[in-house]
Design a protein around this nucleic acid. Structure first.
Lengths: 123, 123
DNA sequence: CCGAATCCTAGAAGATACTG
DNA sequence: CAGTATCTTCTAGGATTCGG
């Protein structure tokens, strides 16, 4: 039965992609290993707190590796793991789907909103 | 440049799958056309409000069709559109990925949490 | 039966200030 | 440089009530 299998699964997926930054962060790290400050620039306007938090989450999921260079000033690099790259492969399918259907989605929304507007003015 | 293309895209994706119910609802409707009350049973413990809200969203995105039978008592059926089925194809790739890696993800979390715990007790 | 309207709360996310 | 700590704001989501 579908609903016995997917509830837990979808909740797991929400943890992975169900927020504003995670997917974008994975895409960013896919380009190359980056330091914290680089990431912050490239992910602007993300806050320090959010970036730290999302990086920890991804590290916890085994999708990102964290390398600390014990120097002064401190230097920390983040890189995608194999699991992270594997995830990116799957996630990019929806990204591509969305990109391929972005106009159709926009048209559907516009049509829906227009109908709602008309129903409103009819009343 | 990646970050010029994907921010808007990922936000669009968050609208689609970045919440607790949407993905599961699409999976549920993929099985067959269903009435509101059927859906509510099958999606338990979803609230009426959430179900209505998510159905409207999906309808607005052109992924779900809504058929009203003007009878007493009222009867309303919901069905996936072609676009909805197309989306399901893309979304199922992440679902399958997650299902295929659920143990690896759990192991990574356990390992991360154990390390954090150890660091804590060392202090 | 289907769903709109209202109220309420937990947790997500932002802003700011401070530290090794 | 790479965080942590704290405070505030915002919103998703649940509970409940009412209507056609």
């Amino acid at each position: 039965m579908l609903q016995d299998v997917y509830p837990k699964l979808t909740l797991e997926i929400m943890d992975l992609v169900g927020n504003k930054w995670t997917l974008l962060l994975v895409y960013q790290l896919a380009e190359r290993t980056q330091r914290f400050s680089e990431l912050r620039r490239n992910m602007a306007p993300i806050s320090q707190k959010m970036l730290t938090q999302k990086l920890r989450e991804l590290e916890r999921y085994g999708m990102v590796d964290r390398f600390v260079w014990p120097s002064t000033p401190p230097k920390v690099e983040y890189a995608l793991t194999d699991l992270g790259r594997s995830f990116l492969g799957a996630a990019s399918v929806i990204c591509d789907w969305t990109r391929g259907n972005v106009e159709e989605l926009a048209a559907a929304r516009a049509s829906f909103d227009a109908a709602a507007q008309e129903a409103l003015s009819a009343a």
